[in-house]
Design a protein around this nucleic acid. Sequence first.
DNA 1: TATTAGCACTCATATTCCTTGAGTGCTAAC
DNA 2: GTTAGCACTCAAGGAATATGAGTGCTAATA
Lengths: 346, 346
Amino acid sequence: MMDLSERKKKILQLIVDEYIRTADPVGSRAISKKENLGLSSATIRNEMADLEEMGYLIQPHTSAGRIPSDEGYRFYVNSLMQYYQIGLEAIAQLQQIFATRVTQLDSMIRRAGAMVSALTDYTTLITTPARKHETIRKIDLVKIGYDKIMLLVVTHTAQSHIMTAKIDDSSCVRLAEILNKNLAGLKADEIDFSLIRNLQEQINEQISLPAKVLINILNFVYEAISEPADAEIYLDNANAILKYPEYADIDKAREMVSFLEDKENLKKLVESGDESGISAKIGKENNLEILKDCSIVTVNYSLDDRASGKLAVIGPKRMNYAKVFASLDRISSEIDKILKEYMSYE
Amino acid sequence: MMDLSERKKKILQLIVDEYIRTADPVGSRAISKKENLGLSSATIRNEMADLEEMGYLIQPHTSAGRIPSDEGYRFYVNSLMQYYQIGLEAIAQLQQIFATRVTQLDSMIRRAGAMVSALTDYTTLITTPARKHETIRKIDLVKIGYDKIMLLVVTHTAQSHIMTAKIDDSSCVRLAEILNKNLAGLKADEIDFSLIRNLQEQINEQISLPAKVLINILNFVYEAISEPADAEIYLDNANAILKYPEYADIDKAREMVSFLEDKENLKKLVESGDESGISAKIGKENNLEILKDCSIVTVNYSLDDRASGKLAVIGPKRMNYAKVFASLDRISSEIDKILKEYMSYE
DNA sequence: TATTAGCACTCATATTCCTTGAGTGCTAAC
DNA sequence: GTTAGCACTCAAGGAATATGAGTGCTAATA
């Protein structure tokens, strides 16, 4: 690898940076106008010609600017790239993604959505069931390391949580017993302050446990049975729209994709379906300019009043309605079966 | 809603079917040539003119064929659509989607992938960790309905399974005890035939349990600790490529998307990264024609020899390398933390 | 010797104009 | 009521042209 003068390095870096930003071939004038460089475009042109000869730059055609070659990128990545600092807001956002609780039932539901898009080859929308009145069936504590325990809360699904706490085996068993005796069978709104106080006293009598650990445990238990703030909504096979000639215009496709990326939009969409059976909204029936060439077919799934959600297919107005109706019919009854399995008792 | 003659209905149906199939405006000649209709294109033209007047068809412009209006689709959906039969192969395929085992750890990993694409706005690829030598920590049985029990198998994560079986509460407890005594601490390859026979005998002595239920239980336990056939691979934000001008050409975008849809391709891709640290493959370094304008940045995550996987970002060569490197660095160490939490004991 | 101003040259992109052909509506004959 | 025939329309595609960003080279300058 030939050595580059500092000036050449600087120029190469500016070109790569600029090209990364704009995706347009970078001209000599654009670089010469940059910051404190103090060089005319003619000089830059000479340097660029050198860099091209060395293989770091490419000219797509005579009268265009330059773009980096693979070797140019490689040099940039190895030697020129500036350190990037991830923003605080981004990190905060990340924490939230991880914090969201996903139960096994939810991921089942999500896969049902994937099935529909596999069957129909259209974009699918599915909401996780809004759960109500969940009861704690059983609580268990399993020691899984010298200072780690796994907390299991069985509701309609098994929810688990790993926490740091030094408890010996027998205390673990005792603690689980106390928790079960006091909490099993309860719903979220039946857990009140006096109950907690009582629980705390019983525990303190029998085992030594840091207050913080108990609070963590109770928090997770409470979370497991309380309704989620809002039902999750999942989108599957969003790029199916690329396959249909109505979106041969890239701008239309982009507009649609970014519409579908906004969960608020999706929630509104899915709520517009009728309450019973499979229903279709065709074109302008959707009352939305961007959807005037789309149809949305929606179906509700539910287990009496305890859980319900929606499943929808969105595609061009010219969709294969027969296939979509048949698929939704099939999968929604499949979901009903799953719900019954997971959530019905007595 | 005006009545339509049978002939008009038939013609409307043929037009909608044809348009759904081809997405091209349907001309009178195409219809007249259809099957047993036995009418000339001129006659069809007259009928089409009527259907247009009634609002069921639209002419995009004078010299084009007709396409259905929203009302035309509506009529089709309500009255003309033929019943569609889902193919057997499709259904078989579906069963498989549901059969795949997804643990809580897997969905954590998947969300880590989502984070990277949120941070960078490029397409992200993530493989779930290949697990080895898992041991059963605890088995539990919870009665959740009059003929339903939930089987819990705690490994590095809690896996649950709901099955139909009529067992009374005390038998449930007894059964769990026996299972734990015989199976806790074992790895997949330590479960052999004599062990199972022994277990079966103990159970038959103490409780009455249909052989089929026991087999179901053992099957699920075994599944929970055996290695998955192949690591799952998830793709996130695949339509990010639409946002970049290098894919302004819709055909290029389509080609890329369908490349990314094939999991076999993805597996090969992700395996090409270096073993340690973050590494980038730029353009032709990927040795694949379709990727000659793409870069792939890969990082490994791992917890000693027990679990490891890959995380990769794929985007245009002109990607923001600094940001991608920083994001991957950050998230992979986040994953390492999770793995440690979930999988390390002692 | 390094830098710069000036100018002729190149070539992708956008624009305009023209051709082509699929499909129509209408009329007259069957 | 149905059909053959024909003039008419208009989107899509191709050829020809204009535009302008950016270059390389030369000669002047510091």
